[in-house]
Design a binder for these strands. Structure first.
Length: 340
DNA sequence: CTAGGGTTAG
């Protein structure tokens, strides 16, 4: 690690290295630097920041919080946040977003409420962050309150915020409310459609998801890979009669060139098995140029569950010959059924 | 200058 070995002795140098490092992690170099060494740099920079009294600078504090959160050290970020006497909207939003990223809705809502009590004005980004935190079953009761704040706060026509609301309702189990918000939106974008389609599919409403999939195209929106990944979920496709519209979605995917997208193909393999057509699953699988552990596991699972135990096992051997290492899921699907 | 809505495998 070039940064770890670098001679860093002044505060500004350290801070600069922290910024560079966090950008490295953010960008295409993600994963190259171990988060443990980033955390190490981060704590050293933190020391210098404290010594120089810069910890009360909202910009500096925010950068520091972001990097701590990126290392998975939300508690450290919270410490920086709590020490900050004057917090701006970025600090509040970063803290809420940090909890959202780490699936801690109660903590996120605590900070959000504290913000409101202290007279802080949430903006659209703050709402995106808090809604993300509440996008889970326990978050519904808080999500409804935030919905009211958003309606009163003048964010009724903000497409990202309204989309985040649709997502929050869908993920927290209230698909009817998700649909209500969606239907009332005057303006939408592809993400809005993807969220609604994915929500319906996740709740088992495959037919409804499919009709929205058609409707979005009638309205001039072009489905992207996320649209396909969202609609092709097992719950939506395992219901009776799903095979028909799944094939239709498949045809669209091929026409749009997504038959070369590994993730889309993985979803197709999985979903064809679930809707009862191992033959179609096999066809997609065999046509794939690249296959990862998910592709292999999906195909093996499909075979095992459809009474083709021997073929599943020989595929399990083949994947390893091709250098793909099985993981827990691979073993789970292999021994789930049909392997005797 | 800083925070950011959606995404595939028991």
């Amino acid at each position: 690690m070039w940064l770890a070995g670098m001679a860093v002795n002044s505060t500004s140098q350290l801070f600069k290295s922290l910024l560079v490092t966090s950008e490295l992690i953010d960008g295409q170099n993600r994963g190259r630097l171990a988060s443990s060494s980033l955390y190490d740099i981060c704590t050293r920079v933190h020391d210098c920041i404290l010594k120089s009294g810069m910890d009360q600078n909202p910009y500096v504090a925010n950068k520091l919080m972001r990097v701590y959160i990126r290392c998975g050290k939300v508690q450290d970020a919270r410490h920086v946040f709590d020490k900050l006497v004057k917090k701006n909207v970025f600090n509040w939003t970063t803290m809420i977003g940090g909890y959202a990223e780490h699936g801690r809705p109660a903590d996120a809502i605590e900070v959000y409420n504290q913000m409101r009590q202290e007279g802080g004005r949430p903006n659209e980004v703050t709402y995106l962050s808090i809604l993300k935190a509440c996008a889970c079953p326990v978050g519904l009761k808080w999500g409804k309150e935030i919905h009211a704040h958003i309606s009163h706060g003048g964010f009724r026509s903000d497409v990202p915020v309204q989309t985040a609301l649709v997502n929050m309702y869908a993920k927290s189990g209230s698909i009817k409310d998700a649909r209500l918000v969606f239907d009332e939106m005057a303006e939408r974008n592809v993400i809005t459609w993807n969220v609604m389609i994915g929500g319906l599919a996740q709740h088992g409403f495959g037919q409804e998801a499919f009709s929205l999939f058609l409707q979005m195209q009638e309205e001039g929106f072009v489905p992207d890979s996320t649209t396909y990944l969202s609609i092709l979920t097992a719950t939506a496709c395992s219901s009776a009669g799903a095979l028909g519209w799944v094939k239709e979605v498949h045809r669209h995917a091929v026409k749009a060139g997504f038959d070369s997208d590994m993730r889309v193909c993985n979803a197709l393999v999985h979903v064809y098995s679930k809707s009862g057509s191992v033959d179609d699953a096999r066809l997609v699988f065999e046509g794939m140029l690249d296959r990862d552990v998910i592709s292999w596991s999906a195909m093996i699972g499909g075979l095992a569950q459809n009474g083709c135990g021997h073929e599943a096992f020989s595929l399990f051997l083949k994947m390893q010959r091709e250098g793909v290492i099985p993981n827990v899921t691979t073993y789970c699907v292999m021994y789930s059924r049909g392997m005797q």
